[in-house]
Design a protein around this nucleic acid. Structure first.
Lengths: 182, 182
DNA sequence: ACCTGAACACCGTTCAAGT
DNA sequence: ACCTGAACACCGTTCAAGT
């Protein structure tokens, strides 16, 4: 039965959700779809391309929050909802920093906060680094915990994320205020 | 001539500096050292272990700066001085968040800034996420540029790093001031 | 004690050949 | 147009056997 790009993407997302990024290989994907590995390359360019598509799907549920804070929390939620979601998005972002639209939207929102275009870009990038780094660490710890390589004495990840986010936003507010009065 | 742990680490660091993390495989390392791959495992536990040692070496030149700002800049400098340095340290940090000592020192310095122990930990973690994320992106872009997969229109990475760092530090200052007056 | 040889169980990607 | 079969050039890790 006709293999399509859609089937491949669905199966890939399934492996990612259930087994994580380490188990998402092109050969494993082919096995699950009951085709030869080479067949995948008729429908997709390469693995990187596939991961970029997955990154887009992971971020799809992110809504249209009007505050940087709300958007940041939404992005974190979307990343957390897929195993290794942060790592996949970080990879896609590294290869094409203009691709993930919620990250671009972050930039737009910061401009609305009174930052110049250049500063808004830098600020949004810094915030994106923080979000992706923090969630990657959360998900890595979750993975180590599953593997029994860690004792689960994790102190409130929600609170720590919000604290770090608060640091950023209060720094942004101070910078915007300084620019307005300067 | 006697293969030692030191020789392995030196050769590994050599490959990292010259060719980057993607080329640092156990088999390539064995080839360079003119031994069989299995020989490496008499001296080191596994690849992860080796990378942890390299992460320590990368951070070794970081000095004893007394300001969070100075320390952050020193850490960035150390990471930039080795190809894919940020990625290697990020990996080591993910597996053992208490291992890289400059990152722990960051925590200590933040406590000196008037933050409580819990907040200092979260603040230092957030700052570490930012530093590692920002430098990883710089180094990834450098890699893509080398591979000719990117046109080199990079806008001042030093300035953008300092801007993001400033956001953090001004947020920290505000939080510390709030705690002192509250 | 330290290393070789050889294996095990994998990778991503390409491409002639078939249908 | 779409897929198979088979290959190419790799991985990390283990372990009996040699010295």
């Amino acid at each position: 039965m006709a293999l399509t790009r859609g089937h491949i993407v669905d199966a890939a997302m399934g492996i990612l959700r259930e087994y994580g990024l380490a188990d998402l290989s092109m050969r494993r994907l082919a096995r699950d779809l009951e085709v030869q590995p080479g067949a995948l390359y008729w429908h997709i360019k390469n693995k990187q391309d596939l991961l970029t598509v997955l990154a887009g799907l992971i971020l799809e549920p992110v809504g249209e929050s009007v505050s940087p804070r709300g958007l940041a929390l939404d992005i974190r939620g979307a990343l957390l909802s897929v195993r290794d979601g942060a790592e996949v998005v970080a990879l896609a972002w590294a290869l094409d920093p203009e691709a993930p639209s919620p990250l671009l939207r972050l930039r737009t929102l910061l401009m609305g906060q009174g930052l110049a275009i250049g500063e808004a870009r830098w600020g949004a990038d810094a915030l994106a680094h923080y979000i992706l780094g923090a969630v990657t660490q959360e998900q890595t710890r979750a993975g180590l915990l599953r593997a029994g390589l860690l004792d689960g004495s994790g102190t409130g990840t929600d609170a720590s994320f919000e604290f770090g986010l608060g640091l950023f936003l209060s720094g942004l507010a101070a910078t915007a205020a300084g620019a307005a009065s300067g």
